[in-house]
Simulated assay, not measured.
Amino acid sequence: MLATFLIGLREGLEAALVVGMLVAYLSRMGRRDVLPRLWIGVALAIVLALGIGAVLTFGAYALTFQAQEIIGGLLSLVAVAMVTWMVFWMQRTARTMKATLEGHVDRALAVGGMWAIVLIGFVSVSREGIETTLLLWSMVQSFGDAPSALIGALLGLLSAVVVGWLLTRGLLRLDLRRFFAWTGAILVVAAAGVLAYAIKDLQEAGVVPGPFTAGAPVDLVTGAVATGWGAFPLGWAFDLSAMIPPGSPIAAVLQATVGFMPQMSWLQVVAWVLYIGIVGTFFIRGLRRGTRPARPAPAPTTDAEAPRGATALLAPTTQEAR
């Protein structure tokens, strides 16, 4: 529940802030008459996300086990790709997002068509909606505890709506840069866990070699698939099921937070480590670039010299950072 709550809060707040910026800009321009069109686009995006979730949830029942595992693994890979792209996209465009959105609105109003504003509302929310749906669906498949995971996601989304409304009304102050930095790090770790589970799905389907295929190394004593260093690369990396039962609360917490499973194959471990190492490194570099102070422009030469220390470097405000 905690993992899906944080994902719902993060993704929902992104969408809420984007919609809040659009509403505020249209209101400031005196064009509240087009707000219903914007809300139509937002509603269509929500319906699309719910529709995708329904198709993924109920459509799987008509498939064979192998087909379910293949589709689940591939969709989990898509979710990992979307999350990774969105995390870095937010780092690159956070400072210019407000100006970009306002430019889209200006062009839509210049065209004068109803569907232009509807499209802006739809596109602005559909990205987060589809990403959230795929990620939550993948996590529910891996957790095996749909009710609590869905409740956590719903609470996160509702909290995001409330927080977004308070922010746009000026009733709440929040360091959005720090918030998205921490939640971005959480998403990177969560995506690594989803990637590991995607590998497991594809291994169970026989698409990716591993412990479930004929090429897996076998322990000569027990006759089971080998575990440990000698089982690299197609066997089990470790099996802690005796110490941490797969259905226990601690196993659920570890899987929800860091993507740990009591039994993992070598390919799962390698994929998890490589993802954390590569994506985590670039993510931290992006944070450092974002916090590096900009060099002040040289002051123009004038007859009367300005007092020293009169120029100060101001950090971007919360809205400018968005």
Rank of each mutant, 00 (worst) to 15 (best):
Q141H: 14
Q141M: 05
Q141A: 08
Q141Y: 08
Q141I: 06
Q141E: 11
Q141S: 13
S142R: 13
S142E: 15
F143H: 03
F143W: 09
F143A: 15
F143P: 00
G144T: 03
G144D: 02
G144A: 07
G144Y: 07
G144C: 08
D145P: 10
D145K: 14
D145V: 06
D145W: 15
D145A: 15
D145Y: 13
A146Q: 14
A146N: 02
A146I: 14
P147E: 14
P147T: 13
P147V: 13
S148F: 04
S148H: 15
S148V: 14
S148R: 13
S148K: 13
A149N: 09
A149C: 06
A149R: 05
A149Y: 06
A149Q: 05
L150F: 11
L150G: 05
L150S: 11
L150Q: 10
I151L: 13
I151G: 00
I151Q: 08
I151E: 05
I151Y: 03
I151A: 06
G152I: 08
G152F: 01
G152M: 01
A153F: 09
A153I: 03
A153Y: 00
A153G: 13
A153P: 02
L154T: 14
L154I: 11
L154D: 04
L155W: 04
L155T: 11
L155P: 10
L155Y: 01
L155C: 14
G156V: 03
G156Q: 11
G156E: 07
G156S: 04
G156I: 04
L157W: 11
L157D: 05
L157F: 08
L157A: 09
L157S: 10
L157I: 11
L158W: 07
L158I: 10
S159M: 06
S159F: 02
S159C: 10
S159V: 06
S159L: 01
A160K: 07
A160P: 04
V161C: 12
V161F: 06
V161K: 04
V161N: 08
V161D: 02
V161G: 08
V162P: 03
V162L: 07
V162W: 00
V162G: 00
V162I: 15
V162H: 05
V163S: 00
V163R: 00
V163T: 04
V163F: 01
V163D: 01
V163G: 03
V163N: 01
V163Y: 06
G164Y: 07
G164F: 07
G164L: 08
W165A: 08
W165P: 00
W165R: 08
W165T: 09
L166Y: 02
L166S: 06
L166I: 05
L166A: 12
L167F: 13
L167V: 09
L167M: 12
L167Y: 04
L167E: 06
L167P: 00
T168V: 15
T168D: 02
R169T: 05
R169F: 04
R169E: 04
R169W: 08
R169H: 13
G170K: 00
G170N: 09
G170I: 01
G170M: 04
G170L: 09
G170T: 08
L171S: 12
L171G: 14
L171Y: 15
L171H: 15
L171V: 09
L172C: 14
L172M: 12
L172R: 06
L172S: 09
L172W: 02
L172Y: 07
